[in-house]
Design a protein around this nucleic acid. Structure first.
Length: 423
RNA sequence: GGUGAGGUGGGUGAGUGGCUGAAACCAGCAGUUUGCUAAACUGCCGUACGGGAAACUGUACCGGGGGUUCGAAUCCCCCCCUCACCGCCA
């Protein structure tokens, strides 16, 4: 959520930045300011009445103590008469505050100046490419056929016990994933991230803090009985560690990493996009999160991108890095880089990581602040990225590295897995 | 799930109707003293939303919501959470 105070002080800039999202920013922002003006007016009136009431009450106390009962009675009834007006005004203030909040919840984050203009995925800006796309033989198989051929993944079994989008990994594939967890967490720990094992379900306040709630309820599995949500990414618990906290400036940046399964309902997905491992309801992911000083967050974003890139290079996969355009960015992000790896048998790029700077958008929702010496608390910046999401990495590895003997693992994963080929 | 105790500022912890936005101590900040370190002393030190050029000032907040009262951290009701013991259980 954007800060109303910031909107008020930088109206033109906010509108200009929001235009990249191809929305009617002017109307949205002016409406917010309009509601806020009414809110301020109502609060001012309300405060004045409350001040008067407080003053009268104090007088009553003094008169009572002095034994001047008659006068105390008179003032008491005057004070009582104020009550109705106060109640009405308080209600009005509350209502306007709620209205403002609701309106602000609809305004997405302001894109950073480096974010390219554009409407959709075709307008994303390719920053760089790496690795080389293998030329596969004629009979090369897509990963779901390789999975069947080598008995690595049982999609039907998942359907039987749960439903579509919940694959069962078997044998060497299961062991490979265990190896991936260790490999990825080791990489992150080496880069200074502290490892955590967070809860896989979160409460409503956490869902709101990182921006999944309200409006995106439909994306998360919800346990109604206990009012809890299955996490769609460990970004949610990790970032919410710091909800309602005031950190010390010298403690920044805070760097965290975690491996967790992720749960997504993916309502509305269909067709070849969901084939095999391309899109699942449950998948594993290692995440990195940073809580940063506002002056450093963009430098940190680049560092995170370089870190993820290094990991993909270790895996030897052909990749490209895209800077998302305004029309393709998530609601809460100010700038996002997507990493895609090329899956050579499907002939398509698969998104395996998304690294974003949310600036103070999430921090404002969760009141995540920091303090520098005796200065007033300021909102921190939050960033996160996948390093990495497993299924599409596996899909690309399988397709790109297929051979007569089976699927050859990259050297680094051989060390962790203890075998050379998936076969 | 049952019973009991409790939730106060960064921390510990006083406070049972007006003199309390909140004692005291610790931590933190600024200064004095000091050869250095340490110690001592003095002052400052919650958050949010308003008004004001500023000095300053209004209001709200003692887990959350509602109520009683001229007046609530303090009394009443509901909810949430924590702790202890019991029960159940990987």
């Amino acid at each position: 959520m954007l800060q109303i105070q910031f909107i008020r002080e930088h109206t033109a800039e906010v509108i200009e930045r929001l235009k990249k999202r191809n929305i009617d920013a002017e109307t949205l922002i002016n409406k917010a300011l309009e509601i806020d003006d009414m809110r301020k007016k109502a609060q001012y009136d309300c405060d004045a009445l409350l001040a008067e009431s407080n003053q009268l009450s104090r007088t009553v106390g003094e008169l009572m103590k002095a034994g001047n009962k008659a006068e105390a009675e008179a003032i008491r009834s005057r004070s009582a008469a104020l009550k109705e007006d106060i109640k009405n005004l308080e209600e009005k203030v509350k209502q306007l505050e709620a209205e403002l909040q609701q309106h602000l919840n609809q305004i997405p984050n302001t894109p950073y100046h480096m974010v390219p203009e554009g409407k959709g995925a075709d307008d994303n800006l390719e920053i760089r490419k790496g690795g080389s796309i293998p030329s596969l033989p004629e009979h090369a198989l897509p990963h779901w056929e390789l999975a069947a051929k080598y008995n690595l993944i049982d999609f039907e079994l998942g359907v039987k016990i749960t439903g579509a989008g919940f694959p069962v990994y078997k044998g060497k594939m299961a062991r490979l994933q265990r190896a991936m967890v260790n490999f990825l967490l080791d990489q992150n720990t080496k880069a200074g991230y502290t490892e955590y094992v967070p809860p896989l379900v979160v409460n409503e306040a956490s869902g709101y803090g990182t921006g999944q709630l309200p409006d995106k309820e439909g994306q998360m599995y919800f346990i109604g009985e206990d009012n809890l949500y299955l996490i769609p990414t460990s970004e949610v618990p990790l970032t919410n560690f710091f909800r309602d906290e005031i950190l010390k400036a010298e403690d920044l940046p805070i760097k965290l990493t975690a491996f967790t399964p992720c749960f997504r309902r993916e309502a509305g997905s269909y067709g070849k996009d969901v084939r095999g491992l391309n899109r699942l309801h449950q998948f594993d992911k290692v995440e990195i999160v940073q809580i940063a000083h506002p002056d450093k967050s963009y430098q940190i974003l680049e560092e995170m991108v370089a870190h993820v890139e290094g990991i993909i290079q270790l895996l030897g996969l052909p990749y490209r890095i895209l800077r998302l355009c305004g029309g393709d960015m998530g609601f809460a992000s100010a700038m996002t880089y997507d990493f895609e790896v090329y899956s050579a048998a499907q002939n398509k790029w698969l998104e395996v990581s998304s690294v974003s700077n949310f600036e103070s958008f999430q921090a404002n929702r969760m009141k995540l602040r920091f303090k520098e010496g005796n200065e007033k608390p300021r909102l921190a910046h939050t960033l996160n990225g996948s390093s990495l999401a497993f299924p599409r990495i596996l899909a690309a590895l399988m397709e790109n590295n297929q051979s007569e003997q089976g699927i050859l693992l990259p050297a680094i994963l051989q060390q962790y897995a203890g075998f050379e080929y998936l076969n």
